[in-house]
């Protein structure tokens, strides 16, 4: 009785998860012919043409930059939150979570309003007689959008690891005193590594695969790998190439997860497949 309750789920997942995955593989490794399709690596060959490699390079670069910025901003924030600076920690944590529940598109759209040529930031800067900031539709805007959207993904895992460490130790590391740096490098940081690893993974992955942020804040000039996939499926209609790029992306992500879990040690490697 209890076992048979798995039945609908197994059928559902086979139909809508497993079969589609095989279809993606099928399209990636075949090319259409007059009579049907034939096995081929052509789609992957195409991906190694310079224009596409540039897209890949740009995606990796922006994702790395965003991840680093998130880490630099997020780690101290997580440390402060895990320490004694606030008495009502749950509230602070909740305040961190709330913006994330706002629709992702709206969050990104909000930056349009702010960064526009006549947007809030520039009106403010002008009134202070400061030079205007024209970063909308540049790589900087894309990175900003990524950092804004994914920062909590960095903070929360690090926070949850740090909050399990003795508060006194965290306080000592954050004291800005002579010994605090040693406490930090020798004790706190090594202990927090698992949180850092999942934080980095959780920022890097969506940053690498997004196509919305680059489309809205990059104005479509900055094609990322996600945009490339989108175009293949919705504009060009080349499913084979689109699937091949997706496969490459999955491989990249698997690789980065493997590297990450290597750093994480035996802690808990995520079972992906």
């Amino acid at each position: 009785m209890k076992r048979s309750s798995l039945f609908p789920y197994v059928i559902w997942m086979t139909l809508f998860i497993v079969v589609p995955m095989f279809l993606v593989l099928y399209y990636a490794f075949t090319v259409p012919t007059d009579t049907g399709a034939t096995w081929s690596l052509e789609n992957f060959h195409r991906f190694f043409e310079p224009i596409y490699l540039r897209v890949l390079g740009r995606s990796l670069r922006l994702a790395v930059i965003s991840t680093v910025i998130c880490f630099v901003i997020g780690y101290p924030a997580a440390m402060v939150m895990a320490g004694n600076a606030f008495s009502r920690k749950n509230v602070i944590l909740l305040l961190f979570v709330v913006p994330m529940w706002m629709n992702f598109l709206l969050r990104t759209y909000a930056w349009l309003t702010l960064l526009e040529r006549n947007g809030v930031i520039n009106v403010l800067l002008t009134s202070l007689r400061l030079p205007r900031l024209n970063i909308l539709y540049t790589e900087s805007a894309v990175v900003l959008g990524m950092v804004y959207n994914f920062l909590p993904f960095m903070v929360l895992p690090i926070y949850s690891v740090l909050s399990k460490i003795d508060k006194g130790v965290i306080e000592a590391a954050g004291d800005l005193g002579a010994n605090s740096f040693r406490v930090f490098t020798k004790v706190v940081f090594p202990l927090s590594l698992p949180g850092v690893v999942s934080g980095v993974t959780m920022v890097f992955m969506p940053a690498l695969t997004t196509f919305v942020i680059s489309r809205l804040l990059g104005g479509g000039q900055f094609t990322l790998i996600g945009n490339l996939i989108e175009q293949q499926f919705l504009v060009v209609g080349d499913w084979g190439f689109g699937s091949a790029i997706s496969v490459v992306m999955i491989v990249l992500i698997l690789l980065s997860m493997a590297i990450m879990s290597f750093f994480e040690g035996e802690e808990k490697s995520v079972a992906l497949w």
Binding site: M21, I229, W239
Partner: peptide, 24 residues
Amino acid sequence: LIMNITYLPVLNPEIVTAISLMIL
């Protein structure tokens, strides 16, 4: 096996889940 298939759509990039369903 079932748990891993369960995690698949959680860990997969959304765009991959999206195009695979579209293909289907």
